[in-house]
Simulated assay, not measured.
Amino acid sequence: MKKIFFTLLFFGCCFLISAQTEPKVGDELIIEAQDGPTYHHIKFPKLNILVKRGKVANYKSVHGNVVIIDDVITDKDNNTYVVLKKKDGSKFFGYLTKVKANYEKSIASGEMVVKS
């Protein structure tokens, strides 16, 4: 009887954890500072493109930004991509209104965190 109880409890906990990791339109995320020079799972423009547009060649302007999920896309390989826009309505680097990110990988690597 104890084994059945603990098995059901385990599956219930797994179900709750997996239900919380699915992104929904309107969820808020925070872009965190990256250790390396680039973001690997958020599709920001390369630094040389920013220089050509007259911006400073770093990603410090996006650190700590609160973003909202505008669209959720799942491809045939079950990768979940989200389209992000800033909560305050301004543009990324002065010219991008939306950026795309791999949801699971960016959360796992610490590039984004879910705002609580």
Rank of each mutant, 00 (worst) to 15 (best):
Y39E: 06
D88L: 13
D70R: 07
K100G: 02
S61K: 04
Y81F: 15
A57P: 07
L29W: 05
F15E: 05
K86E: 07
C14F: 15
I49N: 09
L47P: 03
K85T: 03
Q34E: 12
E32W: 06
E104F: 00
G94Q: 10
Q20H: 07
C14H: 10
V82C: 08
L50H: 10
Y39N: 04
I68T: 04
E28P: 10
K98Y: 13
V25K: 14
H40P: 00
I69N: 05
D77K: 15
A57L: 03
N102C: 05
I49V: 10
N65C: 02
S109M: 02
Y95H: 14
E32F: 01
N58S: 15
K98A: 07
A33S: 11
L96F: 15
S18C: 15
H41K: 06
I68F: 03
C13G: 02
F15C: 14
H40V: 00
N78T: 05
N65F: 00
Y59G: 06
N48G: 03
I30V: 15
K24Q: 13
V82A: 11
Y59R: 09
I49P: 03
G26A: 05
N78S: 14
L84N: 09
G54S: 09
K85A: 12
S18Q: 14
D27Y: 07
Y103I: 05
I31N: 10
Y39T: 01
T80P: 06
G94A: 12
K86R: 13
H41E: 08
G26M: 06
P23F: 12
Y95M: 13
T38A: 13
V56Y: 02
G36I: 03
K52C: 02
E22M: 10
Y81A: 02
